[in-house]
């Protein structure tokens, strides 16, 4: 009984600490803009209408804003992810019909922890457990491409509409591309040794208490924010530069809506390139700021994150050349289609 009481007390303490930190976060976050104005014009005494002071104020405001958003979201998602192990995701997907499976797989791709170095063991673990090939591929498309880092960075830098469009586009591509490949019945183009492996047992889910889950959230923050803060700062510096100086339609002639070939071209350039979501942000910032069309830029970003030469080499271990080519072809076509669609309707 005593133990139970102590647990309750420490849980209460934990909740109070969490609420306190969240309040502090909110107070700081909502005061970032006045602070940046105060710093640039009050402390440094810069005149408000000059290019340099606008650029500096933009940088002083945006950098902590985006980093704070990233920290909060990565922490929360880190805790959510501790409930979604690959083993559990596999159990959810087992025995689902194909169309339902494609939708679920794309959605689970957002929350299941994923590292591109695990793509092959995950692929084998899924297909040997009887999950259809197309459903497995829906997961493998969505997991690296649609994730909290890409979404929070897009939200922080370009607003919720751009983030929502990216989410919608990414999920659609993952669902449809996986479903299409499923219809093509290409199971025999999986390397023969894969099915000979027999189903991977997977690990038992660890029983984690709330402290352990919070620790996982903190680990995620240290790991991810520690890795991407530099790209974020470069991205914002690029944005600040554009904000202050560069004429906004420099890119419009060849990456604007008028140039029909810009979408396929940016996908063709983006596919072999490899970068994570954070690394591509400075480029996205520069392209958008200079007047490139949103659909074109998001298509480029997705092509870079979802498909790459290293990924092709990794997946070649389990996919025969024809299936690998179909996989890349279908996903690239999907990215082009949504790129066009958004240039058309926006």
């Amino acid at each position: 009984m005593n133990n139970q009481h102590e647990e309750d007390v420490s849980l209460l303490f934990l909740i109070m600490k969490g609420v306190g930190l969240l309040l502090l976060w909110g107070v700081v976050y909502w005061n970032l803009e006045p602070f940046s104005v105060w710093l640039t014009s009050g402390v440094l005494g810069l005149p408000p209408d000059q290019h340099f002071s606008t650029a500096l104020q933009f940088f002083v405001y945006e950098t902590p804003k985006v980093l704070m958003l990233l920290t909060l979201i990565v922490f929360v998602v880190g805790i959510i992810r501790s409930f979604f192990t690959p083993e559990r995701t596999r159990r959810i997907l087992m025995g689902k019909r194909e169309s339902v499976g494609n939708v679920l797989a794309a959605l689970l791709g957002i929350v299941t922890p994923f590292c591109s170095c695990s793509a092959v063991p995950l692929f084998i673990g899924f297909v040997t457990a009887g999950i259809p090939l197309g459903v497995t591929l829906s997961f493998l498309i969505s997991a690296p491409m649609v994730n909290e880092i890409a979404l929070v960075l897009l939200f922080g830098m370009f607003g919720w509409k751009v983030a929502a469009i990216y989410l919608g586009m990414g999920l659609t591509i993952a669902m449809v591309a996986g479903w299409v490949i499923g219809r093509l019945k290409m199971d025999r183009h999986v390397e023969d040794w894969v099915y000979a492996t027999g189903p991977a047992a997977g690990l038992e889910d660890e029983k984690l208490d709330i402290t352990a889950r919070i620790q996982l959230g903190r680990d995620a923050v240290r790991d991810i924010v520690g890795k991407v803060w530099l790209y974020v700062m470069i991205g914002i510096a690029v944005g600040a530069g554009i904000h202050g100086y560069v004429p906004t339609n420099a890119m419009a002639s060849f990456m604007g809506k008028g140039a029909w070939w810009s979408v396929p071209l940016s996908v063709v350039i983006g596919v072999p390139m490899y970068s994570n979501a954070a690394g591509i942000i400075p480029i996205v910032q520069a392209l958008l700021g200079k007047g490139a069309a949103l659909g074109t830029v998001l298509a480029f970003m997705m092509a870079v994150i979802a498909l790459s030469l290293p990924e092709a080499i990794i997946l070649r271990k389990v996919l025969k050349p024809r299936l690998l080519a179909v996989f890349f072809g279908v996903v690239a076509m999907g990215i082009m289609a949504v790129g066009y669609l958004f240039n058309f309707i926006m």
């Binding site: 690959p86 083993e87 596999r90 922890p113 590292c115 170095c117 695990s118 092959v120 063991p121 995950l122 084998i124 673990g125 899924f126 040794w193 492996t197 991977a200 047992a201 997977g202 690990l203 271990k317 389990v318």
Partner: peptide
């Protein structure tokens, strides 16, 4: 080698195996 890794039944790497028992994965 991926074929050898799969024999341990893990779906995420890196994994730690002690005396043939998987202790942690991913």
């Amino acid at each position: 080698k991926i074929q050898d890794i799969m024999k341990f039944g893990v779906m995420t790497t890196p994994a730690l195996v002690v005396d043939g028992v998987v202790k942690s994965a991913g």
